[in-house]
Amino acid sequence: MIYLDYAATTPMSEKAINVYSQVATEYYGNSSSLHDMGLAAQTILEESRKTIAGFFNGEAKGVYFTSGGSESNYFAIHSLLKGNNKKGKHIISTKLEHSSIANTLEDLQKDGYEITFVPVNTEGRVELEALSEAIRPDTVLASIHHGNSEIGTIQDLVAIGEILKKHDIIFHSDCVQTFGKIEIDVKKANLDSISVSSHKIYGPKGVGACYINPSRTWQPVIPGTTHENSFRPGTVNVPGIAAFITAAEEVLPIMDVEQERFQGLRRKLVDGIQGDAWKISEVGPSSKRLEHIIGLSIAGIEGQYIMLECNRYGVAISTGSACAVGMQKPSKTLLAIGKSKEEAKQFIRLSLGKLTTDAEIEETIDIFQRFLKKYFNDL
């Protein structure tokens, strides 16, 4: 099968698998244990903490390893709110956030928090003027993602961070889709908290990290928690973390080159699947985007049908975020950028990765041409 769903998850790299196996075999001690086996695991854990902090210009003591991006988002938001509960109960976000944040915010409303969703333009970018106008004296936190998982829009975190810093508002960003793809600098963007995930960059599933600026106050979500400096409960997955760091060390040095390669593959794909009988439109920005995420809309045909046809022909694509599968709802991203429900249902997402080749793109073009000609000829 031709795999074009890398934004959903990625295969583990061979090197990451080998490191996982080695650490799990030789350094299986609990990193909280005081004997030599535990101390050996603890050494790996702390070195991993330093390494990942350097990837986004953070400080090692602000890194907390988790089970993934969703948990990082949940714990970051709740921990920071608990530590700053006297500042207010107003939160700023967008309608484009990952479900782990959207669901967390919905739950927080039951606890008396008020959420303001700032509008985005037709390319999915936050309206900075609207962001400034949304700030209130009781605004405590803003959660705005870095890269959109459906159309690839990159938010200007530096500009957003400047606005929030002036009002001393805690700034959290879901960076799961951008980590290992483009630069993240928590200090340059005045970010107080970010979430990243292993399985998006060829590391193991079930591993991620949350970064919280050490100068920010936070409180444990679960009282009495001892692991990860009281940030979360549960024995730390040292083999998975070591494999995560290994995967990151492989992709970060080549991320600029890869984005350039993806740009070429993207252009070839979009141009190649155009036809006389159908109209294919790219959805999202033409620049400042994640080149490996390709949002498309084919007029007159639902995205779910295209996904199923692609699967039948041996191509794996999606109709949007994998975390929203099964809900049978139009893409919330497309609705937020002004598309109708009908247009939102026509959306498909193809996403490229390090194993994607020119030959795969050419075969995908041929497959699209074949089933689209049949579909529109049968109308």
Rank of each mutant, 00 (worst) to 15 (best):
D5N: 15
D5F: 07
T10P: 07
E26L: 13
E26M: 13
Y27N: 06
S31M: 10
D36Y: 04
K50E: 15
F56C: 06
F65A: 08
T66A: 13
N85I: 14
G88S: 09
S93D: 06
E106W: 14
E106A: 01
Y113E: 02
F117E: 03
V118S: 00
V118D: 04
T122V: 13
R125N: 04
V126N: 07
R136P: 02
V140L: 11
S143V: 12
I144P: 00
H145G: 03
H146N: 11
G147T: 15
G147F: 02
I160P: 09
H167A: 12
I169D: 01
V176T: 07
V176R: 09
T178A: 10
F179W: 12
I184W: 10
L191M: 14
S198M: 03
I201Q: 08
V207K: 07
V221R: 05
P223M: 02
G234T: 12
A242P: 04
T246C: 09
D256P: 03
R261N: 13
E282K: 00
S286G: 13
G295W: 09
G295P: 12
L296V: 03
G300V: 07
Q304Y: 09
Y305T: 10
N311W: 09
G320H: 00
A336G: 04
A344K: 05
T357V: 11
E362T: 15
T364E: 04
I367E: 03
K374N: 02
N377E: 05
L379V: 05
